[in-house]
Amino acid sequence: MVGLLFIGLGRIITARVQRRIGPPFYQQFIDVIKLLARESIWHHWIMTLGSIMALGGLIATMVHVPVAGWLPYDSGGPIFLILYLATIGYLGMAMGVSASGNPNAPLGIGRALSLMLGYEIPFAAILILFISLTGSSSLTEIAAMQAGGFLSWNIVKFPLAFIAAEITVQAMMAEKPFDQMIAPSEIASGPLVELGGKFLGLGMIQMAVAIYFETAIMVNLFFGGGANIFTFTLKQFGVYTIAILINSVMPRYKIENAVRYLWTVPLALIIIQMLIVFLR
């Protein structure tokens, strides 16, 4: 739900950047409810299965990300599990839209997966940096390591890693310049091409959930988690605002250029950061 609010606020921010007023902040909720209440067209039950699997996987991922140090059970925010649970969400989405039979959909998914190949590697490098520093693959502990004021946050300690992570997360959220997968004017919004009604509604919820846990991961990695849920959410919104601001002024990469960019700039940044950390 917070994710939906974020998207709504994000739309206002984009509008303000483009010197418009923008929709009300609750617009995204209206859209989702409208879509859920609408007749929807499907081609095969695999579409249903895919949509449900996607949302299920993403919700499960969200549950594993610690929010202000809080988790429903003591899993400690296992980062590998989070990455791979998110993948089942993406697989579900991909499977569902493939079953719609429109070639634009697998085209978009192919781009999304290629992009995934691009951003997973710098992201893995960032995670490995923190895992090597804390000796734990738990997000809770990585967040706890940064306790004690602004100056012990990782964003201050490792600014290069933060820039790399910001670029990576931009690609993860499929915001511009990495929105090849949904490029509406090229491939008719790619995976979403055949989704109408509640399929699209579930798709928007999926997007919201994904944005929520991606920003939450970022906050845990770089902004020291949060004392309580409000500061945590505020930090999340800060991360999302950066992404949205970049999004609203950027054009779009070609997919191979995007992957090449992700394998050079962020990876080089993170390697420099690693060298600085390990040689010091």
């Binding site: 418009r20 929709p23 859209d31």
Partner: peptide, 12 residues
């Protein structure tokens, strides 16, 4: 967009 009106890519 103030009124929640926006362009979409496909008829679905």
């Amino acid at each position: 967009e103030r009124f929640g009106v926006g362009p979409m890519a496909t008829p679905r």
